[in-house]
């Protein structure tokens, strides 16, 4: 087991290095440089500066050195856990991350809770509802949920719950009430995906011969689903949940922009547009680390949920 975990950690570090390098190369292949990009975004053109002034600005950000020098320099600093300074914000990247990580974590956590609760509830009801019509509708609901773009869902939620009913604020990052609408926006497609996977594996589980035996002991259909079915269907759902968790930062880009929230998603979106390389790389590293960690956890708890995995490993 120890060797297995150590191996996984080594793979994780390798993955992070690859992620870092690919991001670095992609950002440097983009046309233009951060300085002209920054000035072009404003009401002024970079050409109004003299060559000397431009060179000053570039030297300030270390952009005048050859690309491999810059890469080595950044990697060396990273090895010392120094994430460098933002090109466009004049603050250390670590401080930016510290400020923005909390809101995104809170948002992501609530979104996952809602997704699990919502997806689970839909799946359970879809297989256990007595009414055929209800079962038919509940089975098709997730397909609709997956096809709605989050951007549209978010705008709809804002129109109804913020502007019409006034229950929750449309924008901002202060207080739990600002969390609700963006979390629902992020949770909707995730819940739909979870419901789809869970419904299918519940179907498979309920078709197993042992279910007939369990039903024969007098358990209701609902009790069979919740007490026995979910436990057997859980591994597939946990795998999907792992994928969804990994995509939190990507989903936060839409939710945080739409709801004008502070967080990693909006930070990385703005940083990409500004070609603020240190910030993009730091966020990508954090997101990468999260994906790697989640995968590790999923792999480790999989055997607990499904004894067959361990049994197979022993046999093999």
């Amino acid at each position: 087991m120890t060797r297995y975990v150590l191996g996984r950690i080594a793979t994780a570090l390798g993955t992070l290095w690859a992620v870092y390098t690919v991001t670095f190369v992609v950002l440097y292949l983009l046309p233009g440089d951060p300085v002209t990009q920054l000035l072009a975004a404003g009401d002024v053109a970079a050409e109004s500066l003299s060559a000397g002034q431009l060179a000053d600005l570039q030297a300030r950000y270390g952009l005048d050195r050859p690309i491999h020098d810059q890469y080595a320099h950044h990697l060396w600093r990273l090895a010392h856990l120094d994430l460098g300074e933002s090109f466009t914000r004049n603050v250390p990247v670590s401080g930016l991350l510290a400020d923005r990580l909390g809101p995104t974590l809170a948002l992501g956590a609530l979104a996952v809770l809602l997704a699990v609760a919502g997806g689970g509830a839909i799946a359970v009801m879809a297989v256990s509802a007595r009414s055929g019509v209800a079962r038919f509708l509940l089975r098709r609901l997730p397909a609709a949920g997956v096809s709605f773009p989050p951007f549209f869902v978010g705008l709809l939620l804002i129109q109804i719950f913020a502007f019409r009913l006034g229950w929750f604020p449309a924008v901002g990052s202060d207080g739990w009430r600002t969390l609700v609408l963006p979390a629902v926006t992020m949770a909707a497609p995730a819940a739909a995906m979870l419901a789809q996977v869970l419904t299918r594996s519940l179907d498979r589980t309920l078709a197993e011969p042992w279910v007939v035996t369990v039903r024969a002991t007098g358990l209701s259909r609902f009790a069979v689903v919740t007490r026995h079915g979910l436990r057997n269907a859980a591994p597939a759902a946990v795998n999907v949940l792992g994928l969804l968790l990994g995509a939190t930062v990507a989903e936060a880009v839409v939710a945080e922009t739409l709801f004008s929230r502070d967080g990693l998603g909006r930070l990385v979106q703005e940083a990409v547009l500004d070609q603020d390389v240190p910030v993009v790389q730091a966020v990508v590293l954090v997101a990468g680390a999260a994906v790697v960690a989640i995968n590790l956890v999923v792999d480790l708890i999989h055997p607990m949920l499904d004894p067959r995995v361990t049994a197979m490993r022993r046999a093999g």
Binding site: L155, I158, Q159, A162, F163, A170, V171, L258, S260
Partner: peptide
């Protein structure tokens, strides 16, 4: 404050 979406800004 800063609101990027036109419809959200006007709705606010």
């Amino acid at each position: 404050s800063y609101i990027k979406e036109d419809s959200v800004r006007v709705g606010s």
